[in-house]
Design a protein around this nucleic acid. Sequence first.
DNA 1: TGTTTGTTCAACCATATAGTTGAATGATAT
DNA 2: ATATCATTCAACTATATGGTTGAACAAACA
Lengths: 115, 115
Amino acid sequence: MVEQTNELDSIFGSLSDPTRRDILKQVSKKSLSVSEIAIHYQLTFAAVAKHLDVLHRAKLISKNRRGKEQIVSISPDTLATASHYLETYKQLWENRLDSLDKYLKSINKNKKGKR
Amino acid sequence: MVEQTNELDSIFGSLSDPTRRDILKQVSKKSLSVSEIAIHYQLTFAAVAKHLDVLHRAKLISKNRRGKEQIVSISPDTLATASHYLETYKQLWENRLDSLDKYLKSINKNKKGKR
DNA sequence: TGTTTGTTCAACCATATAGTTGAATGATAT
DNA sequence: ATATCATTCAACTATATGGTTGAACAAACA
């Protein structure tokens, strides 16, 4: 509606769920099969598979078949995209706050001068 | 369900919508009233107000009344939380990939040695 | 071949989200 | 006091999301 990139939409959307963040944490340490991931949660297998699908569509993970298993790995580049987005804005805001800070100090100095 | 902090849930949830990201972009440059923000979108006033509420609940913005207007400002600390989260994982993953890279190189070296 | 193991798909339900319209509230100006 | 401007609230709709169960498919094993 405002930007045409829904890349960030799906990345941040994926990250908004604690189960999915936890899955990312798991596979960031070691690539795992779908069932190895699923056993860590009280959810049904299908529910976990759906979470993996969300992460996959956001390109935060990749899947590779190894025999009958599907091995899930992280895709670090995608997270870099999100990270870069946040860093840019953080920077921008910090600069703005710095300016405000200087401005307030300059006003203060002025006041002191006038007294 | 996995972590008890829904702080990141609401932060990333907020960031998953392009209108809300755009609002953040706007107010990161300059604090604005609710209606000043709303005129930039084809949405109804109420819809924009709802987006602001989502951002407010995630503590990504703050509101201060100035006369009859409500002035919206950015809350940079919250974004730092998200940014920090991503940086941590990016770091972790990069390290893992570095190790993999070294491992692959060591294998290669071994092969060469054996030949 | 049939059976087991791992994964995906389909149908369904409950709740959350994004949007609408219209009424209600708050603060200022006449 | 009332009219006006800025914002919020309430009720409602449509769609998305997160979860379930059960069937179907794919690969490996007996």
